[in-house]
Lab assay of single mutants.
Amino acid sequence: MAMNGTITTWFKDKGFGFIKDENGDNRYFHVIKVANPDLIKKDAAVTFEPTTNNKGLSAYAVKVVPL
């Protein structure tokens, strides 16, 4: 089920960042999981599918909501 969130941290040079989800949890995401990576920036609103990996909470099918 899709969730909403906000990008809180973005490491462009490393290709990953973190999203604060609607429950207040931080989720890892990688640029290859983003549909529109050219719009990635700190504080951008996103929708995504929540999941977990071996390191904890993460996100896939991430879409940055255009302003």
Rank of each mutant, 00 (worst) to 15 (best):
M1T: 15
M1A: 13
A2W: 12
A2C: 12
A2I: 15
A2M: 13
A2Q: 13
A2T: 15
M3R: 06
M3W: 06
N4K: 14
N4I: 08
T6H: 11
T6I: 14
T8A: 09
T8E: 07
T8L: 10
T9G: 10
T9E: 11
T9R: 15
W10R: 00
W10Q: 01
F11A: 03
F11E: 05
F11K: 05
K12S: 10
D13W: 10
D13R: 10
K14T: 04
K14C: 07
G15E: 05
G15T: 03
G15L: 06
F16G: 01
G17I: 02
G17W: 02
G17C: 02
G17H: 01
F18V: 06
I19P: 00
I19H: 01
I19W: 02
K20Q: 09
K20V: 09
K20R: 14
D21V: 02
D21F: 02
D21H: 02
D21Q: 01
E22L: 06
N23H: 11
G24M: 04
G24V: 01
G24W: 03
G24H: 04
D25G: 06
D25S: 07
D25K: 08
D25R: 08
N26Q: 13
N26M: 15
N26G: 05
N26S: 14
R27D: 00
R27Y: 11
R27M: 02
R27T: 01
Y28C: 06
Y28V: 05
F29N: 00
H30M: 06
V31P: 03
V31Q: 09
V31F: 09
V31M: 09
I32H: 15
I32V: 12
I32F: 14
I32D: 15
K33R: 14
V34F: 05
A35P: 04
A35E: 14
P37Y: 05
P37E: 04
D38Q: 13
L39D: 10
L39R: 09
L39A: 11
L39V: 07
L39Q: 12
I40L: 12
K41P: 01
K41I: 08
K41S: 09
K41H: 11
K41A: 13
K41M: 11
K42M: 09
K42G: 04
D43K: 08
D43T: 07
A44Y: 05
A44R: 08
A45K: 14
A45Q: 13
A45N: 12
V46R: 00
V46M: 02
V46G: 01
V46T: 02
V46K: 00
T47S: 07
T47I: 12
T47L: 09
T47P: 01
T47G: 03
T47D: 03
F48A: 00
F48C: 02
F48W: 01
E49H: 15
P50W: 03
P50F: 04
T51A: 14
T51R: 13
T51F: 14
T51W: 14
T51P: 03
T51L: 11
T52D: 07
T52V: 13
T52S: 13
N53R: 09
N53W: 10
N53Y: 09
N53S: 11
N54R: 12
N54S: 14
N54W: 12
K55E: 07
K55Q: 11
K55I: 11
G56A: 06
L57M: 09
L57V: 03
L57F: 07
L57E: 04
S58H: 06
S58G: 11
S58P: 02
A59S: 06
A59R: 00
A59V: 08
A59I: 03
Y60R: 15
A61Y: 09
A61C: 11
A61H: 13
V62K: 00
V62T: 01
V62C: 03
V62R: 00
K63S: 09
K63T: 14
K63W: 11
K63Y: 11
K63V: 14
K63C: 11
V64N: 02
V64T: 03
V64K: 00
V65E: 09
V65D: 08
V65Q: 11
P66T: 13
P66N: 12
P66S: 12
P66L: 11
L67E: 13
L67S: 14
L67V: 13
